[in-house]
Design a protein around this nucleic acid. Structure first.
Lengths: 197, 197
DNA sequence: GGAATATGAATGAAGG
DNA sequence: CCTTCATTCATATTCC
């Protein structure tokens, strides 16, 4: 890493005051964003549930951050976040079937970011493709259910669409990096708060 | 090709289910980010000010973030009693491995008694089988369990406070569109070598 | 109210 | 490729 370790023994303090300040501002920005999102979430839940109040109300933290994920992880390989990002990128690139050569490349590349083997990469692509393909054949035109709320079935299920979010690259939300000055503009942000810290 | 392209028929709803799901995911992502930021903030304040941590007045992270974990939650399908009975019957029937066609049949059949998808049926059989298999050999010897006890849950290293701010190395500020899947899937934000700064 | 349990769902890996 | 299994996670429920 480029973060100067050549400092010698003194690695304790790695941030300057300005950096610290910057960090605080960023924290504040995220706090604002989060606040807005909470509001949004609230409106969203009340909106989506519509007739059937209970089911639409809660959402899925989906293993967001609760488990610290064991260190040893003896059996199953689990891609690190960096690896996952890279893999997703490659997958998105469209080069549908990475051949053996490509697999090897990718594995070598990813090994920079954590333990990985070619088999892992291979399996990952296999599974990824299969999962994408296995979109639910039941067309998700579930819009009709809303009117029919008379039935006592409290479970307005959402069907198992899950997993098919390979195309979420286009997101509706602004990147915090972009929104930062806008959100904080009232303050006096000096112009160099761009890159993290 | 024909996969759900006829969505256009229903335009009353501005968001499709997928978009909604996407939004939920993003909200969850921001929740995670915000949570990390709060931790970071805490470390920061306790470090720098020491005397008066709250006075800085940068913002109050408002515990919303901790609750933000709960912010989203996707509803989980639950079979109705009728559905469960039918499923059990089919399972008992001995046709142990319902293939794709069978699954589809069952799903169609069960949809008469409540919302259900093929994936639900599939998962149900998978889980049912696995659980049956595990229950059986459980009766006898339990002597072997202790062999590899080294891997307990290991406290969450997420907030390695101690020194305070140097722990920011483990906190990254992912761009939401990039970090979405790994944040949502594993939440292993800490401990990995994420390159930033 | 928190631990223990049951269970739906996600996913890496194996087999064919 | 496709299917299946094993493992793990997250949530809902229940019990103390």
């Amino acid at each position: 890493m480029e973060r100067g370790s050549q400092n010698g023994a003194y690695d304790v303090r790695v941030m300057t005051e300005e950096q610290m300040e910057l960090l605080r501002k960023q924290i504040a920005v995220y706090a604002v964003i989060c606040d807005q999102l909470v509001s949004l979430h609230n409106s969203l839940s009340s909106f989506s549930s519509g007739t059937n109040s209970m089911s639409g109300g809660y959402f899925d933290p989906m293993r967001a951050s609760s488990s610290a994920h064991k260190i040893s992880s003896r059996h199953r390989w689990t891609p690190t976040s960096t690896q996952l990002q890279i893999l997703e990128s490659i997958y998105e690139e469209g080069s549908g079937t990475p051949n053996r050569r490509r697999i090897r490349e990718i594995a070598t590349d990813l090994s920079e970011h954590g333990q990985i083997s070619e088999t892992n990469v291979y399996n990952w692509f296999q599974n990824r493709r299969a999962r994408s393909k296995r979109k639910q054949p039941q067309t998700t035109t579930t819009t009709d259910v809303a009117e029919d709320a008379a039935v006592t079935t409290e479970e307005r299920t959402l069907c198992g669409d899950s997993g098919g979010f390979e195309s979420y690259k286009h997101i509706l939300f602004p990147s915090p990096d972009l929104g930062i000055e806008h959100l904080l503009s009232k303050g006096e942000i000096s112009g160099e708060q761009n890159s993290y810290i």
